[in-house]
C-alpha cells in the first residue's frame, strides 16, 4: 500500500517483545518521593529482588509491549488478551538499565501513579537487549513530546 508509515510522529506506535518480571504495587506517595533518582529506583528493585518480592529472572512467557501516544500496553503474544494497560498520563517515568547478570539483558522499570497521584506502582519488564530498551525509551519520549505538543 502507498500509505507511508512512521514518519508522521503523532502516529508513533511501536511493538517490542519483552518478558514480565513483576510489579511492586500501591507504594505510598512519600515512598514514591524517595524513588525519583534513577539509582534509588534501581536499588529499590534490587532490594525487592533480594527480599523475594520480585524474581531475579522473569518467567519465560514472552509478551508484546506496545508504546504509543496513548501509553504503554502489554498483551499476550497472540494479542488475544491485554495484560497491562498504562495510560500515558499515569506514567511518571521509565528507566532502563543492564540487569548486571552478564547476559546483556536490560530491565525496564515503569513508574506509574494513580489518577489521584496518592501512590505509585513499579512495573518491571526484561528486554532482550539494550538496543531494544533504548528504542522503547525513544518511542515513549516521542509520545510524551507528542502529548505535550497537543496539550498546548
Amino acid at each position: 500500500s502507498t500509505k507511508s508509515s512512521g514518519n508522521n510522529s503523532s502516529e508513533t506506535c511501536a511493538e517490542f517483545r519483552v518478558k514480565y518480571v513483576g510489579a511492586i504495587e500501591k507504594l505510598q506517595f512519600d515512598m514514591s518521593k524517595m524513588l525519583q533518582e534513577p539509582l534509588d529506583l534501581i536499588n529499590f528493585i534490587d532490594a525487592a529482588q533480594q527480599d523475594g518480592k520480585l524474581p531475579f529472572v522473569p518467567g519465560d512467557k514472552e509478551m508484546i509491549l506496545f508504546v504509543s501516544k496513548h501509553g504503554v500496553k502489554v498483551a499476550s503474544l497472540d494479542q488475544c488478551d491485554v495484560l497491562h494497560r498504562h495510560p500515558l498520563y499515569l506514567i511518571v517515568r521509565m528507566l532502563c538499565y543492564d540487569d548486571g547478570l552478564g547476559a546483556g539483558k536490560n530491565l525496564l522499570a515503569l513508574k506509574t501513579t494513580d489518577p489521584e497521584q496518592e501512590g505509585c506502582t513499579i512495573w518491571v519488564y526484561q528486554c532482550s537487549s539494550s538496543e531494544q530498551a533504548q528504542s522503547i525509551c525513544k518511542v515513549l519520549s516521542a509520545s510524551f513530546d507528542c502529548a505535550l505538543a497537543s496539550d498546548k
Binding site: K33, I42, Y89, M94, G100, L101, C137, L148
Partner: peptide, 17 residues
C-alpha cells in the same frame, strides 16, 4: 550487582515528582 548505562525518560507532567 553493578549497573552500567542507565536511561531515564520522565513524563514532563511529573517533572520533579
Amino acid at each position: 550487582i553493578y549497573k552500567s548505562a542507565v536511561t531515564t525518560v520522565v513524563n514532563p507532567k511529573y517533572e520533579g515528582k
